[in-house]
Design a protein around this nucleic acid. Structure first.
Lengths: 136, 136
DNA sequence: TTGCGTGCAAAGGTTTTGCATGGCA
DNA sequence: TGCCATGCAAAACCTTTGCACGCAA
């Protein structure tokens, strides 16, 4: 990989994502957030920085927004394995830690020959809020 | 819903998807396939037909291609619930039927209050082929 | 005949790329 | 000084929409 200079733009992006660790931001949200704190960064730069951060494993990219924009999430090295739940109703994405699911990768590898990447997996459905609001 | 005319364009799209049942085609692939068999259909029409088929439950739409184009799959009424496995290596998407996973929606609803939609869920990872080709 | 369906072109959005300039080392 | 990173604008990409015409019923 080419050398990585430390620029303030990249530092600003990284800091923002770190602060929002656990949340999922779109490129546009990142752009606006930086603008509001006086560190405006061009969209092209944001995309290029994110791309590099993904290569370095600092950031994860999720593109589950059905044709909409992708979201990015800071991925601390120490982050534990967790699944993502995406509500088709409100679009909210949340984290899920579950013991039953922890054993899933092992099972799938043994029985189906597939190496499951839990961090990249998104379980689709409907959150409790939307279910109650809609169903009844 | 408005009345549905039987046009040859729509019939062609439906026939193609039925033939390829179990596979996942992008709008562009559909367009090209129809063109090759002499039934060229405008992109706009393809999108509009697919949209209506989705409403009618004939077709499922998947947008897991990381910002790329969405895929569509014919969804026979008799299709059983199954999960999708997507290989991050080769991009191939396959079906997975698994008894362990069949009990998953129930567990998640009871313990996490989330209504899991298995048909929409995609498990990300690496297929056996890619693992062997890459890992060793 | 009625009005939905189609096709073309243009618009809409996100993301990528080209090129000159600016800034890190 | 060398060269990567940035910013702007333009391009590329998929998808949606407007409008006139064609075709099913």
């Amino acid at each position: 990989m080419a050398q990585a200079y430390k620029t303030k733009q990249r530092a600003a992006i990284e800091a923002l994502l770190k602060e929002q660790a656990g949340k999922h931001l779109t490129a546009d949200e990142i752009s606006q957030a930086l603008q509001q704190r006086g560190c405006a960064v061009g969209k092209a730069t944001i995309y290029r920085c994110l791309e590099r951060m993904i290569e370095q494993g600092l950031v994860k990219r999720y593109a589950f927004n059905e044709g909409d924009s992708a979201s990015y999430e800071y991925h601390a090295d120490t982050a534990k394995v967790c699944y993502h739940l995406k509500c088709c109703g409100c679009g909210e994405m949340t984290h899920l830690e579950c013991e039953l699911l922890d054993s899933l990768p092992e099972h799938i590898l043994e029985h189906h020959g597939f190496t499951l990447d839990a961090a990249q997996t998104v379980l689709m459905g409907q959150c409790e809020k939307c279910r109650l609001a809609k169903g009844e």
